[in-house]
Design a protein around this nucleic acid. Structure first.
Ligand code: MN
Ligand code: MN
Ligand code: ZN
Ligand code: ZN
Lengths: 140, 140
DNA sequence: TACTTATTGAAATTGATTTTCAATAAAGAA
DNA sequence: TTCTTTATTGAAAATCAATTTCAATAAGTA
């Protein structure tokens, strides 16, 4: 996925393509760590000085709505966003530098069936997230 | 765990036992769903009218510090707290009524080892949460 | 009981997010 | 291209949650 495709997605959904949106998309799409609205604002303003923080909020809202980005929950806070994975994927986060990797292939069927039986719940979804140190940060 | 034990814990850690704390503890300790500070405030004020919202925030902070409660992350928000589980446990949440159950016995060793190898990460922690409908809510 | 000081709630403050609004510019039509 | 429509913009104001300040109070201890 490239910034161009994200803008095309916005356009297809009836949203206009503007310089403000272009700057926000460029930043968020290429980041390998989750960014807060203010971080996006600071970084995107280097590409488009006139950008307003309000527009960052509004653009992130739309990108989330189109599933192009997703919110990242962390012990320190839950206001950061990252370019979304495709299909059923989960996150692996570096506790030192914030780097995000996606992974798939978790198989929780046995577990969920057993929990469902034990608790009487109908289980619909799961959240799974791994935390650790990325290869670069391990070396310090 | 009972409210009395929580207060004893607070006392052991050098905190004083007050009516305000008693009311907050009573509410949080007995709830089977995660409560926000305002919810705790509203409910605890029925037991102790003079209670201030500030004190709720301050008490929750201390209870979290002592690991008596834990924050619950949900799609709708992450400002709610529930009485903490013991040892390594995970949450199962009812998407309808908010009921929380704890479960253990997940085994993610094979998965984490495989992801570690694939990504070069050293994996330290994991978050796992299940969502569904509790037995009561299934029947509607 | 008397003393020390942690705790309290009200009020003020901070900080993040949302709303309002008039000016602007994107998109499509002519 | 120019024109027209209207979504989008950023500044400013408003809202909302959370934190800090502070003088009065009450918990714990001697
Ligand atoms: Mn999964
Ligand atoms: Mn586990
Ligand atoms: Zn790292
Ligand atoms: Zn339920």
């Amino acid at each position: 996925m490239s910034a161009k495709l994200w803008l095309a997605q916005l356009h297809e959904n009836g949203y206009r393509i503007t310089k403000a949106r272009g700057a926000v998309v460029e930043i968020v799409e290429t980041s390998n760590r989750a960014l807060t609205p203010v971080e996006v604002y600071d970084m995107a303003r280097k590409k488009y000085r006139a950008l307003g923080l309000v527009t960052v909020y509004r653009t992130l809202e739309k990108l989330e709505e189109l599933h192009l980005i997703q919110r990242v929950h962390q012990p320190m806070g839950c206001q950061a966003f990252i370019s979304a994975g495709h299909g059923h994927q989960h996150l692996l986060l570096c506790q030192n530098c914030g780097q995000v990797e996606f992974f798939e292939g978790d198989d929780l069927d046995v577990l969920t069936k057993s929990i469902a039986k034990k608790t009487g719940y109908q289980i619909n979804e799961h959240w799974l997230q791994l935390f650790g140190l990325c290869a670069a940060c391990r070396k310090n």
